[in-house]
Amino acid sequence: MTTALSAVARYVDRRQRFFFPAPAVAVLFLIIVLPIAFNLYLMFTKWTVGLGEPRFIGWDNFVEIFGDERVWNGVKVMIYFSGASLALELFFGLMIALYFNRTFRGSEAVQAIYIIPFAATPVAVALIWRIMLNPEIGVINYLLTSIGLPPGLWVASPDTVIATLVMVDVWKWTPMITLIVLAGLKSLPHDPYEAARIDGCNALQIFWYITLPLIRPVLIAALMLRSLDNLKEFDMIYTITQGGPGIASETLYLYSYNVSFGFFKAGYGSALMVIVFLVVLVFNVLMNRLRRDASLV
């Protein structure tokens, strides 16, 4: 008996590198590898959940994607929304970080208040924005009209919906960029600044020729982190507009969701999700290359 047990123990002992990670590997396989593999299989099938089995159709889903106007609309909305919100968040994040990068009375309190939007739960915040932006009963139009300004339609008009969503996104996520950039600013060396001041540079020159190049890798890192979420922004847009009015704010990601979980078309939905994944991937590979170039400087 003991010999049998010790034989097992010896067997396990000699193969520790397989046995010890096995539980973790099994879990990872179940929750990551398997769903991805299933998704990759589904994207070549036509399958409405509940009706029969997935039917293999080769590349037909991708052919359909190219002819689908809503895909192109989704790409357009995604570029418009992400381009505008990422640029503004980066700009304001940097400016505000520069402002915070010095000590003034109550600076800690101001910074603490400033990060509240970033710390708040996205869906809860989005629900409140949705009510505030309502053209009939929302507080924003009430405030505007009470000081004599004309009310806006905000998310209720296809012309202003994306700009309004960008505004909410900027409000919520600029503090995150600020925090990252601020940490970068605090770690910058003092010597170049002293040298520049001795040489008689003004504030603008210092910013342009010293701060900006030094902080560039941090900026790109912040942009990458933010873009991962931003390109597949879902909760905020879904809560406020569900992609409306019509499809005016339906990003590619939202459309994929509607196809998969609104229409239950799992095959086509999987193919769309893969496209979204590729977009995010390509963007981040490009960013990563930019960052490597920047750190070489």
Binding site: N134, P135, E136, I137, P151, L153, V155, A156, P245, G246
Partner: peptide, 20 residues
């Protein structure tokens, strides 16, 4: 009401119930 394309039943009925 303004912004008709965003009216679901909840928005529509509440506007009626508000007397608007």
């Amino acid at each position: 009401p303004q912004g008709g394309t965003m009216l679901h039943w909840a928005e529509s009925t509440s506007s009626f119930m508000e007397g608007k």
